[in-house]
Simulated assay, not measured.
Amino acid sequence: MAILVTGATANIGRMVVDHLLGMGAHEIRALTNNPRKAALPAGVEVAEGYLRRVETLPAAFEGVESVYLAPTPDTVVEVLKLARDAGVRHVVDLSGEPEGWWGDVTRAVEASGLPWTHLWPADFMENSTMWAEQIRRTGAVREPYPDTASAPIAMDDIARVAATALLGDGHVGKAYSLGGPEKLTRTELVRQLGVALGREIPFLHVSPEETVEALTPTMGDTAAWYVDTVLRGFTENPVLPTGSVEEITGRPGTTFAEWAAAHTADFA
Rank of each mutant, 00 (worst) to 15 (best):
V79W: 02
D104N: 12
H90K: 12
T9M: 07
T187W: 07
E210V: 06
A154W: 03
E78Y: 01
S66F: 05
A261Q: 11
V91Q: 04
R136I: 06
T218R: 15
E97C: 11
A59P: 09
H171Y: 13
T9L: 06
G250F: 13
I158G: 00
G63Q: 10
S207W: 12
T222Q: 14
R89H: 14
E210T: 04
A39R: 15
A59Q: 15
R89S: 14
Y176N: 03
K183T: 12
A108R: 02
E55C: 09
D228G: 13
L215N: 01
T242D: 02
R36I: 05
A257M: 10
G170E: 08
E246R: 09
E78W: 03
K81D: 13
A10Q: 11
G253V: 07
A196C: 09
D74A: 15
P241C: 08
A60S: 14
A10E: 14
P71W: 07
L167I: 11
L184E: 02
A162H: 01
R84N: 07
L40A: 08
R53T: 14
M23S: 11
V88A: 06
Q192N: 07
R160C: 03
N237W: 14
A265N: 13
R142K: 13
A268T: 15
A108N: 06
V5C: 05
A38N: 05
V88C: 05
V64E: 02
G220Q: 07
L178F: 06
A111F: 10
R160F: 05
V17D: 00
G87E: 07
L166K: 02
V109S: 02
V17C: 08
A59V: 13
E45W: 06
P208R: 04
R251A: 12
L20C: 03
P41F: 13
V195L: 14
A261W: 04
E126G: 03
G194M: 09
V230S: 05
L31A: 01
Y145W: 14
T72F: 13
E210Y: 03
E258D: 12
D93W: 01
S150T: 15
H205E: 15
E45I: 08
L240F: 11
F267R: 10
A8F: 04
H26P: 00
G100S: 15
H19V: 03
T216R: 15
L51V: 05
T129F: 10
L20G: 00
A165Q: 02
W259Q: 02
A214K: 01
V5E: 00
A162E: 06
W116R: 05
S128M: 15
K174C: 09
T72R: 11
P241F: 06
A151R: 00
T242G: 08
L240V: 12
A149M: 11
G43F: 09
A70H: 13
L114H: 03
L21N: 01
I3G: 00
D157A: 09
P41S: 12
I201G: 01
R89N: 13
A70Y: 11
E126L: 08
P238I: 06
M1Q: 13
A175M: 11
G7A: 06
A262Q: 14
V195R: 10
H118G: 05
M125P: 01
A151L: 04
G170V: 07
G220L: 09
S112L: 09
V54Q: 06
V172G: 01
P238T: 08
P202V: 12
S177I: 12
N127L: 12
